[in-house]
Amino acid sequence: MTTANLNPERATEAVEGRRTFISWITAGALVLSAGLMGIFNLIFLRPRVTYGPPSKFRVGKPDGYSSGAEVVFPAARVVVRRRGDEFAAISLVCTHLGCVVNPTDSGFDCPCHGSKYDSAGNVVAGPAPKRLSWYRIAQAPNGELEVDKRKEVDSGTYLEVKA
C-alpha cells in the first residue's frame, strides 16, 4: 500500500520523491560512515610504534671477536661471524615458519621441521623456502659494530674492518 492510499491529501508525488531521496541519502551516509569506520579501525590496529627488540643494535667492538668466532645474540636472533678481518651478521630465524635455528658444525639446523642450512645460510634440506637472511653490519662512530635488521644484504657480503 502506498502512502497515497493512506493519506490521499498529503501524499503527493513530490512528497514520495522527497522521501525516497532522503532514504537514499540516509542509507548512503550510513554505509559511508560504517565503511570509513572499518578502514579507520584497520589503520588503528596497525601499530605505528612497536615495543619489540630494536632492529638496529650494537654488538661490541671488533677486537672482542677472535678470528673465526661466531657469536650468537639470542634476543636479536642473529649470529655475528668473524673471518680474518671481515664481519657478517646472519639471521637465526628459519625462513620456513620462524623458529630459531641452532648453529652446528655444518651450518644451521632448525628444530621445528628439520630444515638444514649450510654455513652461508643456503638451504641444504627441509621445507625452508629460501636462505637465511644476511643483515648489513657497519661500524658506528665509536668503533662498535652495528647490525641493522631492516637492511638485508647479499649472502657472502662481509664488512672489512681495518685493525
Binding site: L42, R46, P47, T50, Y51, G52, P53, S55
Partner: peptide
C-alpha cells in the same frame, strides 16, 4: 597487525 610488531612479544 596480529602480532602488533614483527615478533611474538608483549
Amino acid at each position: 597487525v596480529l602480532l602488533g610488531g614483527d615478533s611474538v612479544g608483549a
